[in-house]
Structures are given as C-alpha cells and as structure tokens.
C-alpha cells in the first residue's frame, strides 16, 4: 500500500478537504469542525465526573462531627444542589469569561487557571525535552536500521524497540529511580526542583532544573522512542524500494543525498502524522510518568483532581487538554501539507 493511500485511509475527510480548498479555508473548516467536538468532549466529561460521586461526602466523610446541615450548606456553596443542565450552563458561561472556577481541594481554593498555569510549564518542559530527544535519536536509528535490513544492527534495534514498547512506563520509571537514585544516588528521586537553594549543584538553579529533569526525560524518551523507531524503519523500508529512489541513484546522487533527502522526506510523512497525534496527548501531560517521578505537571494534577473529585479542576484540565490536542492536530495538518505537496493546495 502506498504511503498516500495509507494516509488517505487514516484521514479521508482531511485529505479530501485539503485537496479541494486553499489552506486558509482548510484551516477554518477544520476549526469549525473542532467546535462541536470540543463541546461534545466537555459534556461527556462533565456528566461523567458528576456520576463519579459526591465531593462533599468525600470532603466530610472522615469528620464525625459534621452535621447534615453543614453538608447541605457546602453543597449549596459549590452549587451542586442545582440541576445538572444549570451547572453546565454556568460552567460554560464562566468559561467564556475565562474563569474556570476555584479548586475545591488544592491550596485552599486557588483559581483553576492559576493552578494549570503553574503546572503546565513543568509538563511542557518534560514533554518537549522527551519529544526532542526521541526524534533526534529515533530518526537516524530508524533510517540506519532500514538501510541495513536484517543486519545485526537492525535486529538489535527492532528487538530493543519492541521490548521498549512492551515495558510499562511505570515499571521502567520505578526501576530507573531504584537504580540511578536509590542505589547510585546520581539523580534526585523526583520533583522538578530542590527544595532549598543550598542543594543546587554548584549553586546553579538551571543545573538543578536539568538534574531533576534528566531521569523522567530519559524514561519518557525511551518510551516515546521505541514506536517512532519502528515507524521510521518500516516507512523508510517501503520508500527505499520505490522507483524514484533507484532513479535518484541512477542520476548519480550520493547515497547520503538519496537517503536523507529523497527518501527521508517521503518516509517522514506517516511519522509526522503519528508524532502530531501523539504530541497532542503529550502536552496534556503523562499522568503515569509524572506520578512516578512526583513531577509537578498537569498529568499528575489531573490524577489528584480526579482522586479528590475536584470538579472545577477536572473540568479545567479537560478544557486545557482538549485545546492542546486540537491545536496539535491542527499543527499536524499544516506540517503535513507542508511536507507532502499532494496535500498542498493549488
């Protein structure tokens, strides 16, 4: 199956739109299409969280001296006594004003926007570092592996990648912490910064930041790397068999130009699709990695919010994640049109 067809198979509407309309129109149409999707997601999550339980009960359950009246007051205070549609309408109304409400549980009712703002940067830092390293490592390895199909190098690369894909990330995280933090003591156990400036390596804040970043980045990179290597490899194998690669060789172009210019550009098309879709999810944070490494990111915040039935925070993070995924998809589509002229617009 050709790459083009493979991709068409994935995104028939997307490609059809792109082929027919100019880029601006295309982007606009995509955005319009995203609006119902966005609200659909909000409704689903809103209903799901309200079905999950009563946060007032959770807050007061361990306190034997709480009265039924006090409970009633709390429920009223949070507006949970109102009908569901009213709650949702209120949520939307506030959302349009840029207000996501206050957290029930964290930091004594801090605004959700402030919380996300604080945690999002740590997530971006970690995810961008992991994505950067995984691409920088995965693409050359995938290409080398494809060029020497069935060689020892190729077999070890594919085996390692398969193993990498199979090891759950929490396990890899725990083992890494065990070895490099507990036994060897080279890296901190978790968190994004040392608590006291006196513990900064060489007194440098930046170095401290990088020192904390190293382990979670390594684990996340390895987990992201494996599927990308396999994808680059298989895509490259298919492209290297194409006539135009043979034609490029027959024209006397050097092997490097043939592989890294003519083949790679084609082979990256499915990789961009994959990474783009993956990237959207990544920006939302990696709940497991962040929890294992006690990383103050959005993913861990989401886990905490869910555990505490912190409705405003859950909804706030949902809005954030949804927007991130949608933006990432849009960027993917545009990149995609940039790489592949067949998607590009007349």
């Amino acid at each position: 199956m050709s790459i083009k067809r493979k991709v068409l198979h994935f995104f028939p509407t997307r490609v059809a739109h792109a082929v027919q309309s100019p880029l601006a129109k295309y982007v606009l149409r995509r955005l319009l299409y995203l609006i119902p999707l966005f609200f659909g997601i909000l409704i689903l999550v809103f209903v799901a969280t309200r079905l999950a339980g009563d946060p007032v009960k959770l807050m007061t359950g361990l306190n034997p001296r709480i009265t039924a009246e006090a409970r009633e007051r709390l429920t009223q205070y949070y507006g949970l006594d109102q009908p569901l549609y009213y709650q949702f309408a209120k949520f939307l109304w506030e959302l349009f004003q840029g207000n996501l409400g206050n957290s029930y549980a964290l930091r004594g009712g801090t605004p959700v926007t402030t919380l996300i703002g604080d945690y999002a940067w740590e997530t971006f830092k970690l995810q961008l570092a992991a994505l950067f390293f995984s691409l920088v490592i995965a693409i050359p390895i995938g290409v080398m592996s494809a060029r020497r199909q069935y060689s020892k190098l190729d077999v070890s690369v594919t085996t390692t990648s398969l193993v990498g894909t199979c090891i759950p990330i929490f396990y890899m995280g725990i083992v890494t912490i065990l070895i490099f933090s507990y036994f060897l003591g080279w890296f901190p156990y978790g968190q994004a910064h040392s608590l006291e400036p006196s513990r900064y390596p060489f007194g440098s804040y930046t170095l401290d930041e990088l020192w904390h970043l190293a382990l979670p980045t390594a684990v996340l990179t390895f987990a992201t790397l494996a599927p990308v290597v396999l994808l680059v490899r298989s895509s490259m194998l298919e492209i290297l068999r194409q006539d135009y690669i043979l034609a490029a060789r027959a024209s006397g172009l050097s092997e490097r130009t043939v592989v890294y210019k003519h083949a790679l550009r084609n082979a990256l098309i499915p990789v961009v699709t994959y990474v783009g879709l993956y990237f959207g999810g990544m920006l939302a944070g990696a709940p497991i990695t962040e929890t294992v490494f006690n990383w103050p990111g959005v993913g861990r915040l989401y886990v905490e919010a869910t555990a505490k039935l912190d409705f405003p925070l859950i909804m706030g993070i949902t809005v954030f994640i949804t927007l991130m995924v949608l933006v990432a998809n849009l960027i993917t589509d545009i990149t995609y049109a940039y790489i592949d002229p067949r998607i590009r617009i007349e």
Binding site: D243, A248, A250, G252, L253, S254, R265, D340, P341
Partner: peptide, 25 residues
Amino acid sequence: MQKIRGKEIAYIFQDPATSLNPVFS
C-alpha cells in the same frame, strides 16, 4: 560511479508515475 551515473550513462524507468519523487517539484 556517481560521476558516471546520470552524466555518462542515464536511465529511464518503466513507470513514470513512480520514477519521479512525489515531494519535490
């Protein structure tokens, strides 16, 4: 050989649909 390919001896492939790279003008 790279100096001979394309310059001294050139090749025309069977299928024009696949012998040109789709992503370059």
